[in-house]
Amino acid sequence: MWQNLLAFNLGVELGQVAIILALWPALIMCRRVNSSLWMYLRVGLAGGCAAIACYWTFKRVAEVYSTLA
């Protein structure tokens, strides 16, 4: 059981690293070309991540609440 969990978590982490490594050069280039676009892109990405995190949090809290009620 623990090997499956470890393999899954390592796969998720490697996927995240691969995405960052793929996007990093484009983000660096964007920052060098247009600083205002870089700021909007950073705020947009952070806002999108925060929105997804809030959605998942509220969804899981609702599931726990419905289980308890």
Rank of each mutant, 00 (worst) to 15 (best):
M1D: 06
W2N: 15
Q3W: 09
Q3R: 10
L5T: 03
F8W: 14
F8H: 08
N9K: 12
L10A: 07
E13V: 14
L14N: 07
Q16G: 09
Q16I: 14
Q16D: 07
Q16V: 11
V17Q: 05
A18P: 00
I20E: 03
I20L: 10
L21Q: 12
A22I: 05
W24Y: 13
P25M: 02
P25Q: 02
A26K: 10
L27N: 10
L27Y: 09
L27H: 08
I28T: 13
I28D: 07
M29N: 10
C30D: 01
R31F: 15
V33Q: 12
V33S: 11
N34W: 15
S35L: 09
S35N: 10
S36Y: 06
L37I: 13
L37S: 13
L37W: 15
W38Q: 11
W38M: 10
M39H: 09
M39R: 11
M39W: 13
Y40T: 05
Y40N: 07
L41I: 08
L41F: 08
R42Y: 01
V43K: 01
G44K: 01
G47N: 06
G47E: 02
G47I: 00
G48A: 09
C49W: 14
C49N: 08
I52H: 03
I52S: 08
A53W: 05
A53I: 04
C54N: 06
K59S: 09
K59T: 05
K59D: 11
R60H: 05
R60A: 00
R60Q: 09
R60M: 08
V61I: 15
V61Y: 10
A62I: 04
A62H: 02
A62D: 15
E63L: 06
V64E: 08
Y65P: 04
S66K: 11
L68E: 05
L68Q: 07
A69F: 12
